[in-house]
Amino acid sequence: MTGTAIRLEGCRKTFDNGTVALHSLDLHIHPGETLAILGPSGCGKTTTLRLIAGLEHPDSGRVLFGEQDVTALPIERRDVGMVFQNYALFPNLDVAGNIAYGLKIRGMPKAERTARCAELLALVGLQDHGRRAVHELSGGQRQRVALARALAPRPRVLLLDEPLAALDAQLRERLRSELDQLLRHLGITAVFVTHDQGEAMALGHRILVMEHGRAAQLASPQALYQQPANAFVAGFVGNLNVFPVLARSPCGVKVPGGDLPWSTADFPDTLYCRPEHVRIADGNGHLHGHLLAQFFQGAHSRLLVDVGGAQPLLVDCDEFGRHGIGDTLALSIAPRHLFCLQGRGTRSEVSP
């Protein structure tokens, strides 16, 4: 399979009740790219997917696959494969029957359908399950059948709507890895919707974060995490510590719990940092607070520290149990890990 570029140009969608689902969205998806659309409920991510699929049509704007304008085409004429959260398998058909159903509708001869079905079963690791009934399969196996069925007609575009949401955490992690390898092997353009930031970070070449029907930021997973465009993106992608700036200080700026080393000319209202960038200091630190709670999380421990702000400070470290609840902790943050966000604009960062 070869990837197809997808473009949404000025797509706006308003529902009958007056709710604006999308505000003139412009989006370019590269050929062979896996794009994750991430955001909270009601942000417009599913509407965007349905516009690409042809299940919804924009009030204005257009949708293009390559150079072809498909805005007015229904889903059955767009050459897309779609995988739904609930699998949408036919209970009266066995596994092979489900995979071959679309091929039969298209009039493919039986011998070719059988060969293509065997190819897809091998691709998703279900070689010996062709005659199994759908109800005999596990959740992960059903999801693989749904994926194989979507890929059977060799679509130009693969669309996935919360594809792993119905699975338990351990199985979701394993299938996430398998899906990543499969998409890379096929080279197909894929778009998937999720509210799971870990899933988006693991699978997406790029991630579109949406807020209230608009694109908040479109970037690689690394750029989203390290260079969020605004406070919404910074808080939605990963955990975030927020420091309201109270005043200037000889060391930088005064915040609840102490002083932070901010030396740039601008005077921000708020500073931010990630929990893994807060260090427990052996001596003097930038901040001081009392340990409220600690949680062992395997690869690291999460500490909650009261520094006098509205919310406890989050600290990720590799120590657990060294400090007791109520202990006073000195904390430090390297200047390069502090950043400010100017409204909805670009992230500012202090030099190392």
Score class of each variant (00 low, 15 high):
T48C: 08
Q227S: 13
L167F: 06
L287T: 04
H290S: 12
H212D: 06
L183H: 07
A5P: 10
R184T: 12
R322T: 08
R142D: 02
R7H: 10
C117I: 00
D79H: 12
G81I: 01
I99W: 01
L159H: 05
F295M: 11
C43Y: 04
D16N: 11
Q170H: 14
L304V: 03
L27E: 02
R7T: 09
L93T: 00
P256I: 04
R274L: 04
L313D: 05
E199M: 02
D259T: 03
I207W: 01
D318Y: 12
D266T: 10
F65H: 09
V315Y: 09
L137Q: 06
G257S: 04
L291K: 05
L260G: 02
E56M: 11
E119W: 04
G257P: 09
G44E: 09
R344D: 15
L182N: 10
R77H: 14
T19G: 00
G289A: 01
H288L: 13
R176D: 00
T48M: 05
P109N: 10
A166Y: 02
L64S: 05
D196I: 04
G257E: 01
V278M: 07
V145W: 04
G44D: 09
P109R: 11
V157D: 11
D196M: 08
I105C: 07
N17T: 01
P250T: 02
F236C: 01
L271P: 07
N239V: 00
R184N: 13
V242S: 04
A165F: 09
D168Q: 02
K104H: 12
D316I: 00
A21P: 05
V124W: 15
L246N: 03
T47W: 14
A200P: 01
D180N: 14
E112I: 00
A146D: 05
G10E: 04
Y272Q: 03
A234L: 01
R62G: 12
H195A: 08
F236R: 04
P261F: 04
A219G: 08
S60G: 13
V315W: 10
F320I: 00
L8A: 04
H57F: 14
L314A: 07
